[in-house]
């Protein structure tokens, strides 16, 4: 085996969850982690950080909040590093601005840890500037997402795109709803 590349994975949980949901798949974080940092491919995982935006502690968001808290507990128990941020109500919905936390954290971690590769598990184009910043620091930035969730700015800013469609295909179906993308009938990345 050649020289191992140190990989730092930063995942936007909401974006990735929605991407998996759009394919009617139950997101398997461990599979995603193993796929993105496979030691057999000479990729050595430093850390996988999952950024979770918690709904505000209001009655109407109670179910969502409990669900996310359960996920945070599970992720922490399974070796993931979890960064959570309390959300604020905005009309009927809420916002967490977890992307700002993720971007700042990514810069800080990347400069301290100096990984060879930073994998951004998101399709949000707000992270395009982050990708550019990291690349300017000599790091390879891979964006892991699916075509349907990937913003064009992020696609251009990244060093390369990792298509998660294949790994999504190996996940268990989430439910029987019909309103989702069919895997295998989409023109994935060029």
């Amino acid at each position: 085996m050649g020289t191992n590349r140190r990989v730092l994975i930063l995942a936007d949980s909401d974006n990735t969850f929605l991407a998996a949901q759009s394919f009617n798949r139950r997101l398997d974080w461990q599979k995603v982690r193993d796929y993105l940092a496979d030691p057999r491919e000479g990729r050595e995982l430093i850390e996988m950080v999952i950024y979770v935006g918690l709904p505000p502690a209001r009655e109407r968001f109670e179910e969502q909040r409990k669900s996310k808290e359960k996920f945070i507990y599970w992720a922490k128990s399974n070796g993931f590093l979890v960064v959570q941020k309390e959300g604020k109500t905005k009309g009927d919905d809420y916002e967490t601005n977890i992307d700002i936390v993720m971007a700042m954290d990514a810069i800080e971690l990347a400069l301290e840890v100096r990984p060879d590769i930073v994998v951004l598990v998101t399709g949000d184009s707000d992270f395009a500037y982050l990708a550019e910043k990291l690349r300017r620091r000599g790091m390879r930035v891979e964006v892991a997402s699916v075509e349907q969730s990937l913003g064009n700015d992020l696609k251009v800013a990244a060093s390369s795109i990792v298509d998660l469609i294949g790994i999504f295909d190996s996940f268990e179906p989430q439910n029987n709803q019909q309103n989702f993308h069919r895997i295998g009938h989409t023109n994935v990345f060029d």
Partner: peptide, 15 residues
């Protein structure tokens, strides 16, 4: 070449 990309991932080729 020792290094190549596979599905966008930079992978090390088996020696």
């Amino acid at each position: 070449k020792m290094m190549q990309t596979f599905n966008g991932k930079l992978v090390a080729e088996e020696v």
